[in-house]
Design a protein around this nucleic acid. Structure first.
Lengths: 148, 148
DNA sequence: ATACTTGCAAAGTTTTTGCATTACA
DNA sequence: TGTAATGCAAAAACTTTGCAAGTAT
C-alpha cells in the first residue's frame, strides 16, 4: 500500500501549495518504504546514491517541512540528532538507549490511548495535533550482550 | 517536598557510586525547583549567577548522567536542542509547536496508561525504563495570537 | 513568467573531547 | 591518597542561511 500513502502525502503537499519536486518525492518515498527510522545523514547518504547532487540542506529543509505538515514525526536520538518516521497511523516506539535502535510498537489500544492523552492535554485550551510516545529501555540484543 | 525529592536524588547518586559534587547538587536542586523545563543553556545561565565558574561541559555531562540514572527526562524542542525535566512522578507534556512552551499534564489515568504502554513495548524481550509522552499542538495563547 | 526550491559553501549553533587541575570519598 | 569530576579551550558535529541558478506551476 505504499502507493496510497504516497498519494496521500502528495495531496497533502498540494493542499498546502507546496511544490512537488523530485527531491521531495524521493525523500517521501524513502520515508514511506523504510522502517529504519533514519537520521538526516542516513537519509542523505541513501538518497545521494540515486540522486547524486542532492544536498544536505535540502534534506534538512524538507524534513522540517514534512514535520510541519504532520507527514513525519521527529524523535531525538541518544546518539545526537534526530530520527524520522513517516507517521500515517497511530503507533509508538520502543527505543533502545544502548544501541539507539527504534522499534515500532503496534498496540491495538493505542488509538484509544492517543485520544485520551490528547483530551487530557486539551485542558486550558491547548489544541493537540500529534502525540509522540517513546518507551525507553534496553532491547533484547543489548541485554544479551550485557549479560556476557 | 523539595527536600524529599532531593534526598532521593542524592541516594540515587550514592547507589550508583557517583560522587556528590557541588555542581551536581545545584543542578539537581534547580531541576527539582523549576517548572520551566529548561534548556541546557538556561540551566547554565541561571546557575552561573551563583556559581560563577561553572562550565557548560559540566552541565552537559551531568544532564547526560542524570538522564542515564532516570532522574530527569530529555525532550527535543522545536527550537533546536533539548529541554529537561526532573521526573519523579509519571506525567506527560503538552508542547506548543509555536512558542515552544512545555506544559505538564497531570492525568490521573496516566500511571495506568504508562504501565500499559510499557507492557506493550515489552514484546520481543524489550526491557522498558522510562516512558516519554509529548502531545504536540498549539497553546491557547498562540491560538489567540494567530486569530488576530 | 515568476515565485518557490535547490545546491553549494560558509556561518552559526550545539555538543563533545582532551587534558591539566581540583576535590570527593 | 587515588580516582573521578571539573573547567577551559579547542575540535567536532549538527543545522541554518545567503544567494545565484534552476524549475514547477
Amino acid at each position: 500500500m505504499t502507493d496510497k500513502r504516497y498519494e496521500n502525502a502528495m495531496n497533502r503537499l498540494k493542499e498546502n501549495n507546496v511544490r512537488i519536486t523530485p527531491q521531495r518525492q524521493i525523500i517521501l518515498k524513502y520515508m514511506i518504504e523504510t522502517d529504519e527510522h533514519p537520521s538526516v545523514e542516513t537519509i542523505f547518504h541513501i538518497l545521494e546514491k540515486t540522486f547524486p547532487n542532492l544536498s544536505m540542506a535540502t534534506v534538512y529543509n524538507n524534513l522540517r517541512l514534512f514535520k510541519k505538515l504532520n507527514l513525519i514525526i521527529e524523535m531525538p536520538s541518544v546518539d545526537g540528532g534526530y530520527r524520522y518516521d513517516f507517521y500515517d497511523h497511530p503507533h509508538f516506539h520502543a527505543t533502545c538507549d544502548n544501541c539507539n535502535k527504534i522499534i515500532d510498537v503496534d498496540d491495538p489500544e493505542f488509538p484509544e490511548i492517543d485520544k485520551h492523552l490528547q483530551e487530557a492535554a486539551s485542558k486550558d485550551g491547548f489544541k493537540p495535533t500529534v502525540t509522540s510516545v517513546e518507551v525507553h529501555g534496553i532491547c533484547k540484543e543489548c541485554q544479551e550482550k550485557e549479560a556476557k
